[in-house]
Computed example of a mutant assay.
Amino acid sequence: MTGTCVNSIKIIGVGSLGLLSGSLAYQSIKLIPQLIEEVSSSVSNATYSNIRLGKFISRVLVGLSTTCFYLAYKYSPGNEKHPYLLYALVGGILSYGYTFTTRPDDKKLKEFAVPKARASPAPAPVDPVVPQSVTDHDDLGKSYIHVSDEDSTSATSTPNGSVPSSPKVVPAPAGAASAPAPVSDIEHEIDVSLFKKDMQNRLVRLKSIYLKAAGGAGLTFLVSFIGVVGELVL
């Protein structure tokens, strides 16, 4: 490779490191705190999809910077194999590799896509209660006829002008169905509260790790940037 091509590869590598540092910093400063607020207010996974996209972008950037610094060091002349190329190569890998310590949290955060039923469960279906007067229509009719017959036989004992007694209604049996009491949602509230608390703790830990990784990538970018500028200028 010619000197111009190697220099171009070095510049691409430095730029990739800078973008990697910016991506990790943006996730730790902007996206993760936003997701923490979403968890505290409502169960949502909109922002976590953006974090997963940011992880993919960071993976591409660290792969690009590592490849560029490796090629630049390999094809540079002997007197131009500067140590900063190795520092940038190793620093980029270690900075992004530090984010892999969040793998246990990442597996749990994938469950952040909670079904709607968990966030706001539908009330338990209640069987419709059929009035006793309908279910026992036949029995009531029979009772009415029976009582009416008795009233007709005793009509002569009632005073003139009085209104005959209204038919007696047979009371509902003791074992008749009644409306069930509403199901308590205390267990559901406890489950959602514990779930949110666990997600918040994991996200706070994720934020801290990504912030440290961004700092490491930023330091590596600074070293490589100074090396490339000094090499090109001098």
Rank of each mutant, 00 (worst) to 15 (best):
T4N: 09
C5T: 12
K10L: 15
G13N: 07
V14R: 04
L20S: 00
L24I: 04
S28Q: 07
I29P: 00
I29K: 15
L35W: 09
I36M: 14
V39G: 03
S40Q: 15
S41V: 12
S41W: 07
S42R: 13
V43R: 06
T47D: 02
F56T: 14
I57N: 08
R59P: 00
V60S: 07
L61E: 00
G63F: 02
S65A: 13
C68R: 00
C68L: 00
F69D: 01
A72L: 04
K74V: 10
N79F: 02
K81D: 06
H82S: 12
L85P: 02
L86V: 13
A88S: 15
G91H: 03
I93R: 06
L94K: 10
S95C: 04
Y98L: 08
T99D: 04
K108P: 05
K108C: 05
L109E: 05
L109M: 13
F112Q: 06
A119M: 01
P121H: 05
P123W: 03
A124D: 12
A124L: 15
P125F: 05
V126Y: 00
D127T: 13
D127K: 15
D127M: 08
P128W: 12
V129E: 11
V129K: 14
V130Q: 07
T135P: 00
D136Y: 12
D139R: 01
I145Y: 01
V147I: 10
V147P: 04
V147S: 12
S152Q: 14
S152E: 04
S152I: 06
T153R: 15
A155D: 15
S157R: 11
T158P: 01
P159L: 13
N160C: 03
G161P: 10
S162G: 01
P167D: 14
P171H: 08
P171V: 06
P173I: 03
A174K: 14
A177K: 12
S178V: 15
A179Q: 13
V183A: 15
V192S: 11
S193E: 14
K197S: 15
K197T: 14
M199C: 14
N201F: 11
R205C: 07
R205Q: 09
K207P: 03
K207W: 09
K207D: 00
I209E: 04
I209S: 10
K212V: 12
G216A: 08
A217I: 08
T220G: 00
V223A: 07
V223M: 13
S224K: 02
F225T: 07
G227A: 05
L234E: 12
